[in-house]
Computed example of a mutant assay.
Amino acid sequence: MYPAVPDEYQKPVGQPSAPPYDDPPATGIPVIPPPSNYAYADNSGAPPQPPHPYIPSGSAPGNWSTGLCDCCSDCSTCCMTCCCPCITFGQVAEIVDRGSTSCVISGLLYGLLCHFTGCACVYASFYRTKMRQQYNLPETPCADFLVHCCCECCALSQEYRHLKSQGFELSLGWSGNMEKQNRGLTMSPIVPHGMSR
Rank of each mutant, 00 (worst) to 15 (best):
T66M: 10
E152I: 08
V104C: 13
C69A: 07
P47I: 12
S125Q: 07
H115K: 09
R128A: 03
P56A: 01
Q133V: 08
E169D: 15
S65Y: 10
P138I: 05
V96G: 01
C82L: 03
L68I: 12
V147W: 02
H148F: 12
V92H: 00
I55R: 08
P85C: 01
V122L: 06
F168V: 12
C79E: 08
R132V: 07
C72S: 14
F145A: 08
G111E: 07
A46F: 15
S125F: 04
P50Y: 07
H115Q: 09
C82N: 05
G107T: 12
C142F: 09
S171V: 15
T117I: 14
Y110V: 05
S65R: 04
P48D: 07
T88K: 01
V92D: 01
I87L: 05
C79G: 08
Q134N: 05
C69S: 13
E159D: 15
C149K: 09
A93L: 10
S102H: 03
G107F: 00
Q134G: 00
C119H: 06
Q49K: 15
L113D: 09
R161I: 12
T77F: 03
G107Q: 02
T88L: 00
M80S: 13
A46P: 06
V104F: 10
L156S: 00
C142R: 08
F126I: 08
P61N: 01
F168H: 11
D97R: 10
L170G: 12
R98N: 15
G90R: 03
A143E: 12
L137S: 01
C86V: 09
